[in-house]
Design a protein around this nucleic acid. Structure first.
Lengths: 312, 312
DNA sequence: ACCTCCATGTAGGCAACCTACATGCTTAAC
DNA sequence: GTTAAGCATGTAGGTTGCCTACATGGAGGT
């Protein structure tokens, strides 16, 4: 039973095809195919079977793929204990993040890590909630979010840590009749024209909750994914929308008004594969993110912040 | 961080010298020395340092040796889960045992395993209590004993399972004046000539307890290790001795009389390294041993057993 | 019917691990 | 003080085994 084989099975489970694994590990599919066959010969069990165009793991392959998590985590823990003896945590940590949360968290993180030996590699992507988990194959830490629970869909087997619970506010243009309200109910907003996101995307759940609470469909003027796009569309008077409170820059051209009556918060969560999570540098970065998140939650932007950020 | 290197460090910790590890793994010391150097280069830490004639692990080496236990145990667990899918536990299980307990337990074990696919390889050795633990490097299961606690000295990091609590009786010749007694106290026996074991050996603890309870030294006629030798010396009238109840064959030429007033039992324990203990076949064998031990403790030999065994 | 994607097979290069043998150091024995 | 034994280390060379390059064949999608 060799670790190389376990790792291969796990990667195959996570990435789906030999080609994808080959690309990720800088090898050719041929090499992996040969490894699979030697593993099968050594263990005396079939590990994969053809399935349409590609491969599927057999029950034995699944067992080994699951086992890989345990073994590689144990290995990472040893490395972590070793690193504790040699000094400060060091190395490169790859972070993948949803853009809005990244904008809110990453600058503060880099400030906190300035004195450390840790280097950050950043990637960002805007995905459906359930697709973030898969990115832990490529990144050490994935900053994801969940509209429903504290752990995103598909992240059940990953190490996860809540960084921040962020209210989702209603964004209205500065001069709008609702702009002066302290808070808004679904009844207040259901009749307005809406700038929404496509189904499955971040805040679609809340759009649905508003519709469920009022029994009326929203008037969807346009569907976009990018939060900055929502901002400018709302600014220009094309409708109202939903945006996360802490990761939306303050502005004089629109206002964020809290939404009550439906559950409208998201959990910003750091996800990591257990073996990555065991690395000392990764743990340090997660702690840094937790710190930044705590500060954001404690000191939401005030009016003075607003002036500073729009004028400065 | 490669498993091969972790394993090497662990073996080196357990066996002491490169030569011993080389012999156990069918390689040359040179190969191991090279492996050590590549591991050090790869990790950037010194793992061993010269110490008199041989080597000593550095703190980093100790960390890796400990880590090897975790990683190899995780690997064995994967193998065990895989085996559960393929059928009955199978393979060779190496048992090392102290002779007396082996005599009592192994025959019953082999009977129980007759229908299984498990093959047993047997080794036996008579050691001081604290030396049994080290034998788990060579055997999957070591049957050891402890006069003091339920886990033998030096076996703290091993998987252990109590098989049997066995009274240590006083053996007296058939015609002896104490032979008809139902039980004996330290006062009863302290004045007799004794066939004892050397210091550090199995029952020396009990000899010391008798001396402590009475305040008088024992009259040690002769010191021997082997229980069969004790038997025949007592038989021939050279003194009385101590022998374990279940592993001493019944006979008409001597009698075993319970000793009271001092703690006089030993725990027969199965020891295994965690990674070996995770193997399915090893677990099956341990369960078999527990069964045999339970039966022995439940049905100690009666008079009819005695006749059968001496006559049959 | 064509093209694409995926896995598999073969031949050969290259790196890594091991053996054989020689050397140097340390401790114990004579 | 010299010798011998035990242990680790270094060098050279052979073998194994992992990977790449390239070719083949099957399964879907257009």
């Amino acid at each position: 039973m060799e670790v190389r084989h376990l790792e291969l099975l796990r990667d195959l489970r996570d990435r789906g095809t030999l080609g994808a694994v080959a690309a990720a590990t800088y090898r050719t599919p041929s090499a992996l195919s040969q490894q699979l066959r030697t593993a099968e010969k050594e263990l005396g069990v079939k590990l994969v079977e053809p399935a349409s165009r590609g491969l599927r793991l057999t029950w034995a392959g699944e067992i080994l793929a699951d086992g890989a998590d345990d073994v590689l985590t144990a290995l990472s823990r040893v490395q972590a204990r070793l690193d504790e003896g040699t000094g400060m945590p060091a190395g490169t940590v790859r972070i993948g993040t949803l853009p809005s949360a990244g904008a809110a968290l990453i600058p503060g993180l880099l400030t906190r890590l300035r004195e450390s030996l840790i280097r950050i590699e950043l990637d960002d992507f805007d995905l459906a909630e359930s697709d973030y988990a898969a990115r832990t194959a490529d990144a050490d830490i994935v900053i994801a979010h969940s509209l429903i629970a504290d752990v995103p869909l598909g992240a059940e087997h990953l190490a996860s840590r809540v960084l921040l619970r962020e209210p989702i506010d209603v964004i209205v243009p500065a001069g709008h009749r609702l702009a002066s309200r302290a808070e808004l109910t679904p009844q207040d907003v259901v009749g307005e024209p809406w700038v929404t996101v496509p189904r499955g995307y971040p805040f679609a759940t809340i759009h649905e909750r508003i519709e469920a609470a009022t029994g009326r469909p929203l008037d969807r003027v346009v569907e976009v994914r990018d939060n900055r796009l929502v901002e400018s569309l709302v600014e220009q008077g094309h409708g109202i929308g939903l945006l996360p409170r802490y990761s939306t820059p303050a502005s004089v051209t629109y206002r964020l008004v809290p939404l009550t009556g439906v559950q409208a918060t998201r959990a910003i969560v750091a996800l990591a594969r257990p073996d990555h999570a065991a690395r000392r540098a990764v743990q340090a970065v997660v702690e840094g993110l937790v710190d930044v998140g705590r500060d954001l939650g404690r000191a939401p932007r005030s009016e003075s912040n607003l002036k500073a950020s729009t004028l400065g």
